[in-house]
Simulated scan of single mutants.
Amino acid sequence: MEFCDDCGSMMKTEGDHWVCGSCEFEKPRDEKQEQAMTTTQGQVSTEIVDVSDAEDQGLPSTKAQCPKCDNDKAYWYMQQIRAADESETRFFICTECEHKWREDDH
């Protein structure tokens, strides 16, 4: 990822140049520098969250319907599972059966 020297906006590649989408500043691409860049493609979160004794871990609770047992209370936490420029995902843990689900699961 490259940022514009003039305005600080994120730049995109166009052929053999970096081009700013905001102010049209251009600079040549440097292949060696780009090879040293870290990408988020293929990165997978390996963090393991122990859901047992969730209350003792200090997790906050909220009103949320468990899809497994219909309990209406769950612990929740946020975790970054996608690229850093995307929002975090909220996970829920049922206070009764400890079933775990994501906010966007249906």
Rank of each mutant, 00 (worst) to 15 (best):
E2V: 03
E2C: 05
F3Q: 13
C4T: 08
C4K: 03
C4L: 06
D5L: 07
D5R: 07
D5K: 10
D6I: 12
C7F: 02
C7N: 07
G8C: 05
S9K: 13
M10Y: 04
M11G: 03
M11K: 01
K12Q: 13
E14K: 12
G15V: 07
G15W: 06
D16C: 02
D16I: 09
H17Y: 14
W18M: 04
V19S: 09
V19P: 01
C20P: 11
C20R: 01
C20S: 06
G21W: 06
C23M: 06
E24Y: 07
E24H: 13
F25R: 09
F25M: 07
K27G: 10
K27A: 08
P28E: 13
P28C: 04
P28L: 02
R29D: 07
R29F: 04
D30W: 02
D30N: 12
D30P: 00
E31C: 03
E31N: 08
E31S: 08
E31R: 05
K32M: 14
K32V: 15
Q33K: 15
Q33Y: 09
Q33N: 12
E34R: 01
A36D: 09
M37P: 00
T38H: 11
T38Y: 07
T38G: 10
T38N: 11
T39W: 02
T40I: 10
T40P: 08
Q43T: 14
V44N: 09
V44E: 12
V44F: 04
S45L: 13
S45W: 02
T46R: 11
E47D: 15
E47Q: 15
V49N: 03
V49Q: 06
V51T: 15
S52I: 08
D53R: 04
D53F: 06
D53N: 13
D53W: 01
E55A: 13
D56R: 02
Q57Y: 00
Q57N: 06
G58R: 00
G58N: 02
G58A: 04
G58F: 00
L59T: 01
L59Y: 05
L59N: 00
P60N: 12
S61V: 01
K63G: 11
K63S: 14
A64F: 13
A64R: 15
A64P: 08
Q65F: 08
Q65E: 15
Q65K: 10
Q65M: 11
Q65Y: 03
C66F: 01
C66E: 05
C69W: 00
C69G: 04
C69I: 03
N71A: 13
N71H: 12
D72K: 11
K73I: 03
K73S: 10
A74E: 11
Y75T: 04
W76S: 09
W76H: 15
Y77A: 02
M78I: 11
M78K: 15
Q79R: 08
Q80A: 03
Q80T: 03
I81D: 09
I81P: 01
R82Q: 12
R82C: 11
E86G: 09
E86I: 10
S87R: 14
S87Q: 15
E88C: 04
R90W: 02
F91H: 04
F92I: 07
F92D: 10
I93E: 06
I93P: 05
C94Q: 04
C94S: 03
T95D: 09
T95E: 09
T95K: 01
C97R: 00
K100C: 10
W101P: 09
